[in-house]
Computed example of a mutant assay.
Amino acid sequence: MSSPSWGPNWNLDGIVSGLRAARVDWRGPHGRLRETSAGREFPSQDSLRQIVAQLRGALFPMRLGPIELREESEDFYVGHTLGDALDSLLRQTYLELRHLGRQEPRSYDETMAHAVQIVRQFGAELPALRRALDLDVTAAYQGDPAARSVDEVLLCYPGVTAMIHHRLANVLYRLGAPMLARIVAEIAHAETGIDIHPGATIGKSFFIDHGTGVVIGETAIIGDRVRLYQMVTLGAKRFPPGQNGELKKGLPRHPIIEDDVVIYAGATILGRVVIGKGSTIGGNVWLTRDVAPGSNVTQASLVSDLPGCGLEGS
């Protein structure tokens, strides 16, 4: 079918020119003017999404790998898939390192050698990461009476999906690729509604039940065998400014949750507070101070046992 003879005029030349001017106006003050031959500057979300899909398949080949896979070819699939994933991750890591070093550029060889080091160490951590995820899957199965099998948990539970992404992202974060880590985390956030910063430290056998609306901040520290329900926030209470008024980065500002804690739906815990081992935090509780080990905190107990805690910061 031929195009209409009247031919709509979108004024593309004008739009393209205007967009170019907007880019130049932004890049100049931000120190981003560069040669057009420099190529792509940042890692690709699409590439990271594919890499994570490959890594998930390599970690759990018979459940998250291709439907036609058979056990006799499991190792071949894992090796081939990991090779592709790590090769692709190397390119993305190089892009991030080049961007991070833009103020003091290093040679291609130096930057690539650093990227190879990161990706090699990332790959070496995958067996331990798989074992950690096995504990998370088991915790989800044992912690939910509706779960019929560990396979159902792995295939269906958003909390487990979020933890696969988080444990991958946390390795990248620790190895010095924070942007890649954040992209991996945000892919899970978009897919599950669970927002875990890749910098958060999470112990063994962690379970998020239901999951929607859970937020875990960058400097949160979570112990072993902790269970969270939906809409739980482990956030910051305040954000101190620096000398020029900008927010200070990297300060410890999120809660420490000790071992064997259960936090029910809708609870909000803010600031660098410690929730003691074995405590239970009830639904919709608002906490901004420490809780002793073995405590059972409800909305009613905040008024009688922790005066002022229920109102502070509200």
Rank of each mutant, 00 (worst) to 15 (best):
S37L: 10
S37P: 03
G39W: 10
G39D: 12
R40F: 04
E41A: 12
E41T: 14
E41F: 08
F42I: 12
P43N: 08
P43K: 05
S47F: 03
Q50R: 12
R56K: 13
R56T: 01
G57L: 02
G57S: 09
A58G: 15
L59C: 04
M62V: 01
I67Y: 09
I67M: 12
L69V: 11
E72K: 05
S73E: 15
E74R: 15
F76L: 14
Y77D: 10
G79T: 09
G83F: 03
D84Y: 07
A85H: 02
L86C: 04
L86F: 14
L86K: 02
D87L: 13
L89W: 02
L89M: 11
L90N: 05
R91P: 00
Q92K: 02
L95R: 09
E96D: 11
L97Y: 02
L97A: 04
R98M: 10
R98H: 07
R98Q: 14
R98F: 07
G101E: 08
G101P: 03
G101R: 07
P105Q: 04
P105R: 03
E110W: 01
M112E: 12
A113S: 15
H114A: 13
V116G: 00
I118Q: 00
I118D: 00
V119E: 02
V119P: 00
R120M: 13
R120G: 11
F122K: 02
F122N: 00
G123K: 01
